[in-house]
Each structure stands twice: as structure tokens, then as C-alpha cells.
Design a protein around this nucleic acid. Structure first.
Lengths: 210, 210
DNA sequence: CATTCAGTCAAACGTCCGTTTTAAGAATGG
DNA sequence: CCATTCTTAAAACGGACGTTTGACTGAATG
């Protein structure tokens, strides 16, 4: 066996979830793709629900950890210069973009799943995301209120959510954007996409109030 | 029978698709909720896929038609003043916001389905959205290039997609945003949400290049 | 009045689903 | 070495799925 059965299941589940969606992907499709026995899913994980959580946690925990690290580095950097809006946004966006570059492979990329999870139905998924995002969102909101002291906190809250929306939609609907682009832009140039997202969200965050 | 069977199916399907997702909603759940016979779905529509298309078309066609009307009104208004970025964004956002206000009812609103469809898997859905959006996107891109002559078209293309992302994420992930807000903002004040989205996207569209 | 026909209905079709069972094999530790 | 645990394997479980069938309705048509 090339790799561990558990990892093979996670890899195949991740890929098929990204391509076809979670509900439309059967355990049989996963185990066939992974070339493992069907029952091994319920042996290593306990249920399909638990597998879904494991798939998401494997990617999102490192991403959110990296987000917190990069933000801390900005806030505690030598010299004491306060972080700019662009720097905060890059700290938030880059870990996902990096994952997009790293896991680029057959068919729809893994980040499509990350971009889609915000809107996937199911209370189990929602509470999981809420638990993971609440700390990150609160920390970034604090940082933004330092970089943008003129924006009232409730408005800043909305604008942070909109910034999340820019990221989620860009990677979650990349296949649609690619179709609409008709070659006008190169959707595979992840560094350029990151630059564009940061410039847009920075302008949005700084937008005059009233 | 209170209303037509076909409409009862469409109403129930729309509601359940928004609440549970398309793939997770069975025809039996729809016909039970609509209080009609199971076979009537395959009689009035031909398949579940066709029902999904009908549900989306019923909402999206009027919205996109309204978008085109509002944009034309801006471009051809007496006096000949060119439309502002904010006016263009309002023409794009308001038809969806209006739908959110109009169809507010039990559980997750209908617009959640609209916000989610961009990231739903399935090539059938994707091609349908692409067909409906391409004309609207092209027209709004033209209008934006008039309002923002200094922004290169490829960058404007990205920023229009980001503006779509703001809308899609806000309505598609409203349940998550509400949970993160902890009462800091009122997510049910649709007019305020619209104002916030316009201000953010306008700032993003105008953001300095480089 | 006989006939047509769109619409509804209960029931069944075959298929696929997540999960469980039972047993055989590999790995591990005394 | 045997005994124990961990892992895989094939097969089956009951249930839910989308779809189809064939009979039945009631109003419209000639």
C-alpha cells in the first residue's frame, strides 16, 4: 500500500467533495477512488459526518493557525509600526492562496471546498465553522480597528465579512469566473488573484462612511 | 386546493433547497411539504434536475431582468449624467435585496439559495448560471468601465467578480454571519445591509491600481 | 351520452445509500 | 511460540432514493 489507508480515504474524500459536493459523494465512490474497502471508512472514522469534519479540519486548522501566526507577527513586529490594511488582508488571504497553489491537481482544486463550506447547509458543518472562525474573526477585527480607527466597529464587522466573501467566492466559484472571463484574465495566476483581492478588499475596508 | 400543484411544488422545493441544500432534499420531502402526490413532480416537471432549473429560473429571471432594466435606466437617463459606481452597484444589488425582503419567511430565506448556487457543484447548474449571468456581467462591466475609466478592464473584471462575491456570501452565509455578529449588527435590516455592501464594493472598485 | 384527456393517486420498480456483521489476515508484545 | 490487538475483506442489512406504471378521477368536447 502506497500510503496509509486513513490518509488515502481523506485524500479521495477531499477531492470528490470538492468536485461533486459533500452530499452527492457516496462512501462507495470514495473507497473506490481510494482503492480501499468500503467498511474501512466506518472503521477509521465512525461515520460519514465524522469523515467530513476530519477532511475539513485537516485543511482548515493549519490555515487558521497560519492566519493567527501571521497576524501576531504583524502586531508584534520590531519597530512597532502598526500593520496596514493590506498587510492584515494578506495575512488573512495568503494561507488559503498558498493552499490553492500547493494542492493544485486534477479537476477542481481543494480550495473550492473551502470556499464552498461557508454556504453548505447542515447545522453540524455550520457550528464547526463557527467554532473555528470566531477566534480568527475576532482577532482580525481587533487588528482592523487599529489600522482603521475611523471606521465604527459594526461597519468594520460587516466589511470583514465582505472580505471573507471575496475570498470564499473567488475560490468557491472559480470555475464560473473562469467561464465568464473568456481569457481576459488568468485565473491560475494565484499570486495575481491574491494581489487583486487585497487591493479590492483594502479599498472596501477604507471606503468613506456615509 | 389552495393553489396550483405546480406552484406548490416550486414553493416547497425552493424552501427546502434553501434550508437543506439541493442534493439533500428528496422529492418525497418536497411533495410531503407541498401536500401533493409524489408522482406529480415527474408529471409536471420531467425530473428532479429539471425541477431544480425551474426553481432557480423562476427567481433569477426576474432578478436579472430587473438588473438590466435598472442599468438601462441609469445609462439612458435624461440629462445624460454618467452613472456613478454606487448607482451601478445599487442596480446590481437591489433586485436581490428586494427579493430577500419580499420572500422573508420561515427558516432560512430564499436568497440563501441564490447566494449558494454559484458554488454548488454540478455542471448542469454551472452552465445554467453561466448562460444567465454572462449577459448581465458583460453589461455591468461596460457600465463600470464608463464610471471608472482609469481602471484597466482585466482588473475591473476581477473587481466585478469580487462584488458578486460580496453579495453571494452575504446572503448565502447569512446564518454564519449572524452567529459571528453576536448582536453587534442587525442582519435583518436589509436596507442597511444593502448600504454596507454598496459602500464596500464601491471602495473596492475604486481602489488605486498598483 | 360517449369519449377524450389532463391531472391525481397508490404502489411498485430497480438502484444506491450509510452502516453493521462476521470472519480472515497482519502486526505486535509477552 | 502463542495470544492479543489492529486492520482489512466480502457480504449483507434495512431504508431511502428518483422514476415509472397503471388505474382512477372529473371536467370538457363532440
Amino acid at each position: 500500500m502506497a500510503t496509509d489507508t486513513k490518509d488515502r480515504i481523506l485524500d479521495s474524500a477531499e477531492l470528490l467533495f470538492a468536485q461533486q459536493g459533500i452530499a452527492s459523494t457516496s462512501l462507495r465512490a470514495i473507497t473506490d477512488h481510494a482503492d480501499v474497502n468500503l467498511a474501512s471508512v466506518n472503521y477509521h472514522f465512525q461515520s460519514k459526518d465524522a469523515l467530513v469534519q476530519a477532511v475539513l479540519n485537516r485543511r482548515l486548522n493549519p490555515i487558521n493557525q497560519k492566519r493567527m501566526e501571521l497576524l501576531q507577527a504583524l502586531l508584534q513586529r520590531p519597530g512597532g509600526a502598526p500593520p496596514t490594511v493590506e498587510e492584515i488582508l494578506e495575512a488573512f488571504y495568503r494561507p488559503v492562496t498558498q493552499e490553492a497553489i500547493k494542492t493544485r491537481r486534477e479537476g477542481r482544486p481543494i480550495v473550492a471546498l473551502i470556499g464552498r463550506m461557508y454556504t453548505e447547509p447542515g447545522e453540524l458543518l455550520a457550528s464547526q465553522i463557527r467554532a473555528m472562525m470566531s477566534q480568527v474573526a475576532a482577532s482580525y477585527l481587533d487588528a482592523l480597528s487599529i489600522a482603521l480607527p475611523g471606521i465604527p466597529p459594526p461597519i468594520l464587522f460587516w466589511r470583514l465579512q465582505f472580505s471573507v466573501g471575496v475570498l470564499a467566492h473567488t475560490f468557491g466559484a472559480m470555475h464560473l469566473i473562469e467561464g465568464l472571463a473568456r481569457g481576459r484574465v488568468n485565473v491560475n495566476d494565484s499570486e495575481d488573484v491574491l494581489r487583486q483581492m487585497i487591493a479590492f478588499a483594502a479599498g472596501g475596508l477604507r471606503s468613506p462612511v456615509q
